[in-house]
């Protein structure tokens, strides 16, 4: 579960945009546009707030925006992100400097991640060819379309279950500048039906030539992923491998330890894992920076052992 709104994105602090104070630091901060509970109750719409934001004299200099709750909280029914995509696309000429979009900074107390209704966000990539950072939260209804983008440096998809259709859109994408790829795979219970084989194009290493960070996070098949990635060509090219938030056990960790390429990384992140104390110690003595914090214990009911990813639901 995610408990807090983000405070940093694309290397910049996040500030809630308010009509009163306006845009103070268009280049140095990302501005968050979210409907508060009261605004939702008063019948305000996200698109109205966004229109007011665009009318701010400094909006044309804004470099990053964070889209928070667009009315999910105050609506009893499905409220997809499609109108938000539409509004952003329509505003393309008014946001010529926009480099970073966080789409869906909605915490679990506002809406479960798997209940966030996303939509086809591909028009954003066409409308903003200068975009460098894109993060989307929630995979239900999400589509990236046929993704060809010459500027995108980081692509992050946070979900409690990432559908194979989206994974395939990623592996079919052309993003020559991509340095940071982060997929929260989640569990099959919430639509996370991608198998290791579906990730193979990423493992081959040629897909995104500038990739420095690969995150295959929050996965229920973390062990299988660890085994596959440990000896994959992609590890030779990246600096950071992030398998955190998932259900990694000693099995997957042993595969990582056995790989000489892993020991040449700058950083290995496996925090939130289910490895034994001994295995955790071995990981930590790999000689590279390792985050093996948040060692979790499985839930046991009789003979059943349950290991949970950090963000499900």
């Amino acid at each position: 579960m995610i408990y807090e709104h983000i405070t940093n994105f694309a290397g910049k602090p996040v500030k809630d945009w308010e009509a009163q104070s306006g845009i103070q630091d268009p280049e140095g901060a990302c501005y968050a546009l979210r409907l508060s509970y009261e605004e939702g109750e008063e019948g305000q719409r996200w698109t109205d707030k966004f229109a007011a934001f665009l009318d701010d004299p400094s909006s044309n200099r804004v470099s990053g925006i964070v889209i928070g709750d667009w009315g999910v909280l105050s609506s009893a029914t499905d409220e997809t992100s499609a109108p938000v995509v539409e509004a952003l696309v329509a505003a393309r000429d008014r946001l010529p400097n926009l480099r970073a979009i966080f789409f869906g900074d909605i915490i679990g107390e506002e809406c479960e991640i798997s209940w966030i209704r996303q939509s086809d966000v591909s028009p954003l990539f066409m409308a903003y060819p200068q975009l460098e950072h894109f993060c989307v939260r929630g995979a239900d209804g999400l589509s990236l379309g046929t993704l060809k983008h010459d500027s995108l440096k980081s692509l992050i998809i946070q979900s409690g279950g990432l559908g194979v259709n989206v994974v395939r859109e990623v592996t079919a994408a052309e993003m020559p500048e991509l340095e940071h790829l982060e997929l929260w795979l989640g569990t099959d219970e919430y639509g996370g039906n991608a198998r290791v084989a579906d990730l193979a194009p990423i493992f081959d290493g040629g897909l995104f030539p500038k990739l420095k960070y690969l995150g295959l996070r929050d996965s229920q098949i973390a062990d299988e992923i660890a085994r596959a990635v440990a000896t994959a060509p992609v590890v030779e090219r990246i600096r950071v491998l992030d398998l955190s938030l998932g259900t990694l056990t000693d099995e997957g960790a042993a595969a990582l330890l056995a790989s000489p390429a892993i020991a040449r990384l700058e950083k290995l992140d496996v925090h939130h894992h289910f490895c034994s104390e001994g295995m955790t110690a071995k990981l930590q003595s790999l000689g590279v920076e390792v985050d093996a914090s948040e060692r979790e214990k499985p839930d046991e009911y009789g003979d059943e052992v349950w290991r949970y990813v950090a963000v499900g639901e």
Binding site: Y3, E4, H5
Partner: peptide, 11 residues
């Protein structure tokens, strides 16, 4: 059920 603020990765 109004949304609660988070702190230190908790509600």
């Amino acid at each position: 059920w109004l949304p609660k603020a988070g702190f230190d990765n908790r509600t």
